[in-house]
Amino acid sequence: MPEIEIQVPAIEVTDLTVAYNEKPVLWDIDLEVPRGKLMAIVGPNGAGKTTFMKTVLGLIKSAAGQVLIEGKPYTKARHLVGYVPQRGSVDWDFPTTVLDVVMMGSYGTLGWLKRPGRQEKDDAFTALEKVGMAKFANRQISQLSGGQQQRVFLARALVQDAEIYFMDEPFQGVDATTERTIIQLLKEMSDANKTVVVVHHDLQTVPEYFDWVMLLNVRKIASGPVSEVFTENNLRLTYGGKVAFLSHHEAGEMFEEKDQ
């Protein structure tokens, strides 16, 4: 790899503003995430955490600003990105198996018309082994517990063999075993110089799990190494007081409008 690429941040967001019907839900966000970081995005409900992630992934159009993945716009860097959406965003009664869901991770590189074959199946098994779900491969997905569902989603993203992973609340409603499995995996990924961005709810575990953090509440309050920016003062700016409540309230309403 040419040396110059190493200096390019994994994720570079400049002046990103997102609005629903001219009402801003994200204001002028600047963010730089160096490669190999394990980053949490924290903020109150409706602060725009999921919106931010979806905008970076090109799922939501921004009103202004730009996003660079390894120095390239998202459409040109898609193969570098893996995504773990919120577990609750899909219908788990869908008629499909664990293995099949995990193989969906290979659809992006397969291209039109091609079906997943031997190679893709092996990759899916490897990914399932990593999350400790190999023996569930042929299980119907509705028979999984919440934690198992989350691990299946994680395995699907692993199949993408990406450089940067975006995960939307992977710890939401999962059991302790799953939480440990996931965090261990995230650490391994980070050690392998992969960048992982996680929307996270549990403030208590931030210092333990992550080395980088962004505090978000419609605008970016702070971002950087956990030891530097995860301070009481910044948290108060993000969550506390009337200000936070108002923005939470408004942004929440906007979400509802958009979701339906």
Binding site: G58, L59, R78, P85, T96, M104, L113, R156
Partner: peptide
């Protein structure tokens, strides 16, 4: 049949499909 896996992903998890560039 031609768009089998695309339709499957569209029905199961459209956001994820979009993130893959579909």
């Amino acid at each position: 049949g031609i768009f089998w896996k695309e339709f499957k992903l569209l029905s199961f998890d459209p956001d994820y499909g979009a993130s893959l560039g579909m």
